[in-house]
Design a protein around this nucleic acid. Structure first.
Lengths: 338, 338
DNA sequence: CTGTTAGCGCCTTCAA
DNA sequence: TTGAAGGCGCTAACAG
């Protein structure tokens, strides 16, 4: 591969001049520049990023750190879509992109700081770290900037991008209210998950603002699983024929509720309206297609990438960004006709 | 971040000695080594890979080149799973991994060789290039080794990993034949994709060996897209009520055909049998669950990564590897009762 | 066993 | 407007 030296020899100019010409400095004679440019093109010159990074102390590469990238995560393509967004944006911004997949055990062999230093990463986008992952704290305290996806933490060179979790969940419940539903059950996920809490809050808040009594026994736990959700919904619906709508903290659980209705001979949405959360691919294929709240991981990826580059380049841009979730109206919800 | 120099100062040994101690050369006094090791650990030293790569002329990083990494490809997570396989294997082998996403237009700005040279990539794993992509030829002729996924090309420092594409596709068509189908349509993907050709060949060969006439007009083009496939199948099925089965070059297109049948009020599999290809997650959830040919992209990714590292390190290992596809019988196929 | 010297390819002073 | 010198952090060849 051609180097500056090669071009220097071929043109007769010094390496320094060649470097400046190629990097667009204006203290180079136009003729000189043209000649250098021409030869450079002929030789198929491309700067060696490693060498450049070494001296400039910045690599123009961003790491995308995920925990346990493995086959299983293919199921919800949330991570993949985020990755696509990050990749596209970084590519537009002319940054490189290395994928850093780590496991809890690996984090003991190499610190976060070392990982960044080795590659001289300019910044890192982080997704899906557990709250107790050692890397999380290291990342926040590290001098190399990072942007977190869906983990709201602020710091000097730390940013995050997340979605309007609460608002969008409220929107979903309000939609049911507006259609005349009053007896609305809530299928919650794991009580320990952050998103569960938020969606639960949304549920309660909307009931309150709508002057609908909150009933403890209308809140079920499906543990984010289809089967658990189905079982739970089955017995519940038997005991509560007055319930006309279900808000579920995830699509998977909504599918469980849907199954329960089938077994009970109920029609969706005539007898029971169902709203899910996530807009998983499947949700548009089931029958009836599921009304649900869609997240936009691709957008989040793009914003995260854009933000990390801004921070890295020292531009003072906001250190937080939000992507709007969207309520997607399909056919699992109808007016309450009782 | 600590450098060799820092350790050198802290220990009093020269940079060279420190380097050798840390890299496990045995011409270093045990005491010296211990001291150096200790200080290195204290200082949290991690070698600067960029600097090392620069002098060693090898970066210990492999590129994963894909065309058009974009949201749409999330539907069939083939690419993602391959990526996971590559990532996991490379991580085991202690190699780094950069994602190179390119589009046909981008390929004009920067040659393949330049792309590799910039990062001093040791090797590249390539997936999803079209046959007429400029990068493909460049890659094969390039001095930097590459391994292709699903594109069988051999060369000195070129290898490939693929599955028994032809055999498994033939198996699928034979299955239809055995169930009595004779009027079998074929939904093909992009004509430029290698896999399309192979599946097309399989289709033709089985027809021939079964003494079933091949009909040009039974071959449709769904461009690997659901919508295109649906549209195409719609008008086709209207004009060809005699057709009893569809072999599709991808599950996504099979879903398109499935949709078409719904619009036409046809029952699957009673009125029309459908076989897909890929075994995407969705295929087991649609109704009826799709009979399809399963690939193992994760395995292919691992093998590709392992192969590229072997080639890079000059070990003489085979330059081809195969992963077996499997025909998965579900409910979208039935006996021909006409 | 250890240190000196040299250089990977590039960029950034500083002189000319 | 151009060039020479120096150095980023690391390794390799050669002495001692």
């Amino acid at each position: 591969m051609a180097t500056l030296k090669d071009i220097s020899k071929a043109t007769g100019f010094s390496v320094t001049t060649v470097s400046r010409a190629l990097n667009g400095y204006d203290d180079v004679n136009k003729k000189t520049r043209d000649k250098i440019m021409t030869i450079a093109k002929e030789l198929g010159y491309s700067p060696n990023i490693l060498a450049r990074s070494l001296v400039k102390k910045q690599s123009k590469t961003i790491g995308f750190l995920v925990t346990d990238l493995k086959r299983e995560s293919a199921k919800d393509n949330f991570m993949f879509e985020t990755l696509c967004g990050v990749s596209d944006e970084l590519s537009d911004l002319d940054y490189e992109f290395v994928l850093l997949s780590t496991t809890t055990s690996k984090q003991k062999n190499k610190t976060y700081g070392q990982m960044c230093a080795e590659r001289q990463l300019d910044g890192v986008v982080i997704q899906g770290l557990k709250r107790d992952d050692p890397y999380l704290l290291e990342a926040i305290e590290s001098t190399v900037p990072c942007v977190l996806v869906d983990i709201p933490v602020e710091g000097v060179n730390t940013g995050y991008v997340t979605s309007n979790q609460l608002e969008s969940a409220k929107q979903a419940v309000r939609y049911l209210i507006r259609l005349g539903h009053r007896d609305i059950a809530f299928m919650n996920g794991s009580a320990h998950a952050y998103v569960s809490m938020v969606r639960y809050d949304a549920y309660r808040q909307v009931l309150q603002e709508s002057k609908v009594d909150f009933r403890e026994d209308y809140v079920l736990n499906g543990d984010f699983e289809e089967l658990a959700s189905k079982e739970s919904a089955l017995s519940f619906l038997l005991n509560h024929p007055e319930v006309t709508a279900f808000f579920c903290a995830s699509d998977v659980m909504a599918l469980g509720v849907l199954q329960a209705t089938r077994e009970l001979g109920l029609n969706v949405p005539e007898d029971l309206s169902i709203i899910g959360f996530d807009n998983i691919l499947l949700s548009q294929y089931v029958s009836p297609p599921l009304t649900t709240v869609a997240q936009q991981p691709y957008e989040m990826g793009r914003k995260a990438a854009s933000m990390i580059v801004h921070i890295v380049e020292g531009q003072d841009a906001p250190h937080e960004a939000f992507v709007n979730n969207q309520l997607i109206l399909r056919e699992s919800v109808a007016k309450n006709r009782r």
